[in-house]
Simulated assay, not measured.
Amino acid sequence: MYLLVPGDINTRTGGYRYDKRIMQGLRAMGRHVELISLEGAYPFPNAAELEQAGAQLAALPDQALTVIDGLAYSVMPEQLARHQNRLRLVALIHHPLALETGNSRATSEQLMQSEKAALRYAQRVITTSQSTADSLRDYQVPDSAMVAVCPGTDIAPLARGASPDSFNLLCVATLTQRKAHDVLLEAMAQLKELPWHLTCAGSLERDADTAQALLRQCHELDLGERVSFTGEADEATLNALYQQADLFVLASYHEGYGMVLVEAIARGLPIVASDAGAIPSTIPTGAGILVSPGNATALAEALRQFMQDDVLRQSLQNAAKTARTSLQSWEQSTREFEAALTW
Rank of each mutant, 00 (worst) to 15 (best):
H32T: 12
L35H: 08
G54C: 02
A302Q: 06
A233Y: 02
H94N: 10
E51N: 14
K20D: 13
R313K: 14
A278G: 02
V291N: 03
T107R: 13
G152W: 12
A145E: 00
A64C: 04
P157A: 14
L89C: 10
A320C: 06
V141F: 01
V227F: 11
P164E: 05
L341D: 04
L3W: 09
G277M: 06
H95V: 02
E205D: 15
R105A: 15
L238N: 07
A245K: 01
A319M: 10
L316P: 14
L214S: 08
S135C: 03
A156C: 11
I283Q: 06
S144H: 08
D309V: 04
M307W: 03
T176S: 11
P164S: 11
D246W: 04
A211L: 02
L80I: 03
L204S: 04
Q79S: 09
F229R: 01
I271T: 13
V125D: 03
T282M: 10
R313C: 13
N318Q: 15
R21C: 00
Q177I: 09
T342V: 14
A81V: 05
P151S: 10
M112C: 03
L26A: 04
F248I: 11
Q123F: 01
Q56P: 05
G286I: 13
N103M: 15
V249F: 02
T342W: 02
T176L: 03
D8Q: 07
L80N: 08
L65K: 12
L204M: 13
S166C: 13
L198K: 09
H219N: 13
N239S: 14
P142I: 09
A53L: 11
E225W: 01
